[in-house]
Structures are given as C-alpha cells and as structure tokens.
Write a protein that binds this DNA or RNA. Structure first.
Lengths: 254, 254
DNA sequence: GAGTGGTCTAGACCACCTG
DNA sequence: AGGTGGTCTAGACCACTCG
C-alpha cells in the first residue's frame, strides 16, 4: 500500500504545525533558523540533497520549501553553488499581502494597531477606485478604519472595504487577534489568495495629515489594494496611506 | 537509455525559443493565448491533466508553467475548479524586476526611452542609499540617466548605478536594444536574478520637477532598487522617480 | 463519483561551479 | 570529477468542487 505523510505521526512540531504540508513545515523551520542566527547572511544552506536526507523528504518537496523562502527574500540560489542566505534590511514591511503585523513583526519595532471606529455598514462611495459589480454595489459595504503605529508613531492609515455578502454579524463581533484575515478565516472560512495593488504618491489632505501627524500637502504613499478570496466573486478592498518620512516600504521580486 | 527533451526536435516554436526549457515555452504559449483573446477573463484554462496530454509534458512541468503565470498575474487557481484567467487592468507597469519596456509594452501606450546623458564613469555619492562594500567603492560607478515616456509624457526618471567591476568598454559602447539588461547579458553574460526595493513618497525638487514636467513640491514616487546578479558581489542600483498623477504603478502578489 | 488542483515520492539528465 | 541547483518524467494520495 502507498503510504505518504508518515512524518506527521513522528513530527517534532507543535500540534498546529502538524496540519501543515511538509514543505511548509520545512520552510518555517529554515526561516526560524535564519532569523535566530543558525544561518547567517551569506552562509550556504545545506544542499537540496542534504536537506532531503536530513528531513526524510523528497528533493522536490525540499525545493518547494526553498522556493517559498526565495519568494520571501530569505535566500537566493546560485546554480552550481547552492542556496545562500540573503541580507534582510529592516524596512517597514514587505509590500506583500501578508498582514501588517506579521510582516512588520519581523523587525525590532513596537507595533500597535488602533481601531479608529468600530466596523460599520455603509454605502459604497460613488467614485470607488475599482469598478464594482452590481451584486457588490447592492450589498453595501462593511468599512474598517485602522491606524498602524510603529514605535508610537502613526505610519499607516488603512481603510478596508468589504462587500456585505454573506457575512452575518460581522460588524457586531470584534476582530480575532485584532486581525481581519484571522477573523475572516475563523468565522467565515474566507482565505485571501491573491493581491493586486496600485501605488501612487499624493499630497496629504487635512484629514490624513492629522491622523498621520504630518503636515498638509506633505507627500504620502497611497496604495490601493484588491484582495481576491477563495469565495468566488468576493473581493476585499483596501486603501492605505503611508507616511514614508521615517520608514520606507520594501519588497522583493524574483 | 533515458531520453528527455525529445520535444525539442519536434517543437513548433521559433529557433530562439528552442533553447528554452519546456515549461517556459508552455508559459509563453499560454500567455500569448491569453493576450490574444483565445482565453478571456474568467475563462477556465484546460486542466493540468489535459495540458499534460495535449503538450506531451508531465503534469509537474505543466504546473511549473502555470505557477509562473500565477506569479505574473495572468491566472489564478481554485482548488477543485481549475485555473482561471485573471483580469488585467492597465497600469503603468508591474512593480516587478522586468525591464520597463517589456512590462509597459503589454499596454496600448506608446513607450519611449530618452537617454539624458551618455553613460559616464564617476565616483559614488557619499550618501548612497545602500551600504557599499569597499570593493564597490574603490571601483567607482557607471551612471546612466534615462527618462521614460508614455504617450509623449515623461512619467519616470531613472538613474542607474553600476560598480565598474570587470565591465570593459561599457561606457564607450551603446546599449543593445536600448536595454541595460540585454546589454549586460549579451556583452558580459550578466543576468539579474533578484530585485529588492524600497518605496517612498517625496516632494519633487527643481531638477526632478523639471524633467518630469510637473511642479516643484508635487508628490513623487521614489523607488530605490538593488538588483542582484549572477555574478557574485555585483549589484546594480537604480533610483526611480515616478510621476503618478496620470499612471499608477501596479503589482501583484500571491 | 468524477474531475480539479495541492502535495509528495523516486528517479533521471543537464549546465554550472569549484577544487 | 564530484557536487550543486535546474529541468523533467511517471506515478501516487489527498481535499475540494460540482453535477
């Protein structure tokens, strides 16, 4: 009989981790080793064949783990040499679609989230950034207004807009872990699979300048995002205003 | 005897393409089919098993092709359903590390590149954005100043800095295809494998405002990039100033 | 229940790099 | 020459979606 996944029963990971696929477990393990200094910038990781042997995984599975680490900028590869630990400068956060806390949490800064208002139900703005379907328009929108602080400084203002489609009692229940993504996943089995964004530089108006504690007309990074979810036709929209005087926004591409 | 790659000899692709791996050929084929309307937004691609059969490739190879298309935002996947053609809005360009022309060329706009100066050799600025190694500092830097136009409007000002390390006669020869990447690849076998960038919003100074034909103090997107190459220790640096009044900068994450 | 993508194994050949 | 990552094959089991 064909047996796979036998490692689950012998795994040395926590209970939660045991649900994850092997390549993600390996990915997290190596990531932790890099962050904790086991492998330092410029070091060679064990070769793919060595990792296969050590962790009793097929090389393809090891490669899947490594390719995720490449995507996240932890390592890069040189054919004929090996996988090399990359330098990671401290920026405000990767311009990825991971939640703000997870991304910025990798730095040594103190992060805080402030809910400016309780989530509320409202109508869509007539001049919304993306074209909406009739279904979305008719549903109305759940609006979240949050301010992200780094070391007590407000650096990012985030407006999130969610079509009110089959999300019973969303506005009346608090967020889980203060995280929108965790809430959607736990309460509604909604997962984000994809992010598309547009970036502009704008001048701060009075409201934004006030909230970000900067001057009117000062240059602000404006990012508009559309998250695709595993629920067909359900998108989540976000409008971010970043004060980049102190912190820049970083990202990596391969 | 173990034979692979037999498709090369029967391939229906051009001579140049015949050097590419199978998954890239399939990737380009499907990309072309999407761009030419064979598959439209929301359409399902043939399943992975069907594509394997049609193109006489293993499913793993098909998956490699599809995952590249996901990365570039042409499709997304739904478990249990299939691969779905994604909508692609027209933005100035993906915030990826592909060359400006390739990325913007997917739109219907007229693109022009203007060389503001001939490439020249100079010293590094004392306040360079990234920390440089002593080797880089000692080598001096090759500087390129280019202006990118969309429909006759200047939208992006690009300063590129290359350490003058084993790049004989770079400044005395013209760029191939007007492209830095093509030139580095053809003349020096240098390939870019990775890009790291930081983004800020700044106020235009007199020089930048003049070149981008906008007003002083108007908000400008400033992107600083570090490209990693296949040559160990050789990085290419770029400083981009974008006027985002008309065009925003787009990107996709998975 | 049949089909889809997600994960995984065991193995192969290749181009590239280093000693 | 031996090791590395890059590409590729042939197969398997799984969770998910849809009719």
């Amino acid at each position: 009989m064909y047996i796979q996944d036998k490692k689950y029963t012998f795994g040395s990971y926590s209970y939660k981790m045991s649900d994850l696929p092997q390549y993600k477990k390996l990915q997290h393990l190596i990531k932790k080793q890099i962050l904790s200094g086991v492998y330092k910038e410029g070091d060679l990781l064990p070769s793919e064949n060595e990792l296969s042997t050590i962790h009793e995984l097929n090389r393809a599975t090891v490669r899947q783990a490594l390719s995720e680490l490449v995507k996240d900028g932890y390592i890069y590869k040189h054919k004929g040499k090996g996988s090399i630990v990359s330098s990671r400068r401290q920026t405000l956060g990767l311009l990825s679609f991971k939640g703000f806390s997870e991304v910025v949490g990798q730095t040594t800064h103190a992060i805080k989230n402030k809910e400016l208002k309780k989530p509320y139900l409202t109508k869509w703005d007539d001049q919304f950034f993306y074209e909406l379907t009739d279904i979305e328009k008719a549903a109305g929108c759940i609006c979240l207004e949050r301010l992200r602080m780094v070391d007590e400084d407000p650096v990012m203002l985030e407006f999130t807009y969610i079509p009110n489609l089959n999300l019973p009692r969303f506005v009346s229940k608090p967020l889980i872990n203060n995280s929108l993504f965790d809430t959607l996943l736990n309460n509604y089995q909604i997962e984000v699979i994809n992010l598309e964004q547009d970036i502009r530089a704008i001048a701060a108006d009075e409201e934004i300048a006030g909230l970000l504690q900067t001057e009117e007309e000062s240059p602000i990074l404006h990012i508009f995002r559309r998250y695709r979810t595993n629920r067909d036709g359900l998108f989540i929209y976000s409008s971010l205003y970043c004060n980049t005087e102190q912190y820049s926004i970083g990202s990596i591409f391969n």
